[in-house]
Structure formats: C-alpha cells, structure tokens
Design a protein around this nucleic acid. Sequence first.
DNA 1: GTCGTTATCGTGGTATACCATATATGAACG
DNA 2: CGTTCATATATGGTATACCACGATAACGAC
Lengths: 239, 239
Amino acid sequence: MNSIVTLVQRTTSATPLALAPLNATSLRDQAYALLKNAIADTDIYDPQQELRLDERQLTTALGVSRTPIREALSLLEQEGFIRTVPRRGIYIIRKSKREMIEMIQMWAALESMAARLATLNASETEIAKLRHLFDEFQNSPPSEHLGEYSDANIAFHTAVIALGGSQMIIDATKNLLLHVRAIRRATITQSDRAARSIVDHLKIIEALEKRDTELAERLTRQHTLDLAAHVDKHCGFLG
Amino acid sequence: MNSIVTLVQRTTSATPLALAPLNATSLRDQAYALLKNAIADTDIYDPQQELRLDERQLTTALGVSRTPIREALSLLEQEGFIRTVPRRGIYIIRKSKREMIEMIQMWAALESMAARLATLNASETEIAKLRHLFDEFQNSPPSEHLGEYSDANIAFHTAVIALGGSQMIIDATKNLLLHVRAIRRATITQSDRAARSIVDHLKIIEALEKRDTELAERLTRQHTLDLAAHVDKHCGFLG
DNA sequence: GTCGTTATCGTGGTATACCATATATGAACG
DNA sequence: CGTTCATATATGGTATACCACGATAACGAC
C-alpha cells in the first residue's frame, strides 16, 4: 500500500481534542506539514515507490475537503516537492542529478555565508557546543555506526547554519536539506568519506573558534562542494 | 485609491481572447503573476501607501472567484510578500531592517557562488557581454542619469547570476531581487556609491575574464556585503 | 459619562457542487 | 485482427455557499 496514505491516516486519528491545545493552525497548514513530513520520510529514489498522489484520496484520508488539501499541495508544488499535471495527476518529484548538484552548490553558498557570519557574531559558548556533536565518535571510527553518524553529520551542518544567526538562511536551508537528505543517505555510506568528513568538520570548528572568517567560510564551502563533486561522479542512478 | 487594484483592473481588461494564444495558464497562475507584479511596482515603504488587500475586492477586480485568488495569495504569503491575519485582513509586508540585511547577505552568498561557477563554466563570449552593459556610462559619470544606471546595475548582477548557470540560484535570486529592489532605489542615490560601484563591477568582470575563481567570488561577495553594511548604517527608516 | 454587555457584521477558512477536457475504454467498422 | 471513432470516466480547475469567530459598534446599566 501507499505508505504516505497510511501515515497520514494514523496521524489524523490523533485529532480528537483530548486537551484541546492552542491548536490555532489552519487545516491548510496542518495538511501542508503532514504531507511534507510524509514526503520527506518516503524514499522517493526507490524505483518501486509509488509517486502519485490523489487529491480525493487524501481528502478521505485526512477527513477534510479538497480546499485545504489543494492549497497545501500548491505550496509544496512551489517548493519543488511535487508537480501537478492537469488531468494526469499529482506526482512527487524525483530530482535530476543536475538539480541535486545545484541544490548542494546552493547549500554550500549559504552554509559558507553562515560560517562567515558565525565568526563575526556567534558567542564562544555556542561555538563550543559544536565539538560535543562528535563526542561519541572520539573512540570508535564512524564506520561502525553510520546511521548515527549521518544524523550527527546533518546536525553539524544545521548547527553551523544556526550559528550564522540569519533566519533567512536558516529557512532557505531547511527545504534544501529535505531535498538533499534522501541522497545523502546513500553517499555517506562509503566509510572513507565519513572519516574524511570528520576531519573537515574539526577544521571548520577550529576556524570558527579562531574567528578566522575567510578560512571558516572557505573550508565550509569546499567541504560541501566536495559532496557535489562526489554526487556528480558516483550518483549515476540519478536522472 | 488603491494603486494595486487599479493596475489590476487595467491588466484584466486585456484578457479578451483576441487571438486566443496558447494561454494554458490557470487563473491561479495568472492571478499570482498579476499580484506579484502589482506588489513589486508598489512603493511599499511610502508611509502613505495602503498595504491592505481584500480578497472579495480582488475577486471583483479580476473577475474570478475567490478560489484562484486565495491560492495565489497563499503562494505570495509563503514567499514572504504578504501576511494574512485571520479575521483582520491580508497585508503587504514591509521588511524590517534586519530582514533586509539578511536578504542582501543571502544575495551575496548566492551571487558569489554564481560568480565562482561562471569562472568554471561560462563561455568567453558570454562573459564579454558584461562589459557592454556599461558602455553608455563610459563618457559621462553615472550621477547624471541615476535611473538608467540603477537599471544597468541590476542588469549586471542579474547577468552574473545567469552566467553561473545554476537554475536553482537564478530562481532563488529572483524573489530576493524583488524584495531588495525597493530599497536599492533609495540607496543608490548617493552618486559616490554609484561611482565606486562601477569600479567594483569592472574588477569583477576582469576576474571573470581571467577565470580567477577565488577572486571573482570574493569580489562579488564583498561588493554585495558592502551594500548590506551601507543599508545597516543609512537606512534607519526601516523597522 | 463611562464602562460593560450584547448584537451585528466583516473576514478569512472550509466544504461542496459544478465544469472542462485529456485519457481510457470499448464497440463498430474495415 | 487491427484501426478508428464515440462515449464514459477520472482528474484538476473554478465558482459559490456556508461557517466560525473576532472586531466593532450599538446599546444599556450603573
């Protein structure tokens, strides 16, 4: 069955207003959040995966009318997660290799700017926290628990961006992360990349601590551009 | 009267299907484009300007129902152009000074990445075209025709971004430009800034021609960050 | 006259009925 | 058996009616 639909139904059954929290969010926003999470949790690059969504089906699954569903889908379409083809259907989009590389490059641009801003504005204590993200990998090599390392990896980049303090960059990056995350899972699996990645991260942290603006920026940019180059070479399965 | 509404009406009267071109665009997309242009052409930082939109009013002005209007407004809201307050109204957003600076910083990050990519991928002839953008300013100083120079200025930055070849960056930048344009008008009015700006541009062009990746990137970033610093100092009228 | 209460209304949110048309289906004809 | 055309159906797009709720104004009590 369609995993998205089932997830959606499960979440919907949570609506009984047990405590009636200050749930002032509109149905459109709820549907938007739900669908976005569902899409993010779907392995859209699995060739088996069904990528078609059905408005009417979502209607019954969520227990709301088409209107908020359609508005939510409009937003997701604008963000590049889905595409609606008139009289054909609504489809989750698989990003092409080129698009994926462009997204990573854009990520590099934004995160390196965030690193620059972090050297200028972030507090000592905030920067210090970065090191703790990798405490658990001090003794054993990351190859032994790649799943956790992948999470810590994402957490590191997210943290650097947060350190920059630019809400605009933080927001713009969130969607990029969702798009790139699916592919990142596959690329980090090479353990040598994970090892080199840790070295890069430590150098970035040092640059941030030394408040070396240019260096932190450059290292951050290069680290992410390396990922783009890696995807370019090894991800032929992308369109 | 509300300038947006009047503009909207004028444009609407152009819909008679004289030749019935392949106008396959949905009413939602038409409304979206129309409203976006209308907002872009409005001087939202004029304290006199009415910033409230009325769904029902737009309905009659455009001659369509609320549905496509609302979907278009949803998109504009997500892009940060408007904000809808339940039971209060829909308002065009004035960006705060902080937000404006963050947008310019983001612009700097993206354009400098585009410059980097341009040194690696753009053709000689494409880069050569950049010089022609300023041909008309060779003899007379830009202070004599600031309006035209402002246009050429925007054209230059847009061209650099296009040279980068990343559709993702091109798209992300379009909205930023709309947001920043209103403020740019006011800041470029100092003629000394215009003169220095031209010098910067020429240096960027030279770096691109020499395929000096790092230099082109750095100059482009710094040029735009200078604008951010300038806005920070001189645009106290922003929230 | 001021404060509080109530009624009305304006507004965005939602549900639903309707529409247009590309695609699919199948029957009829060659 | 294959091709073609007519009909049916599914799907996204649009219009509209209804709803909930807060704001505001009108009114009344003190």
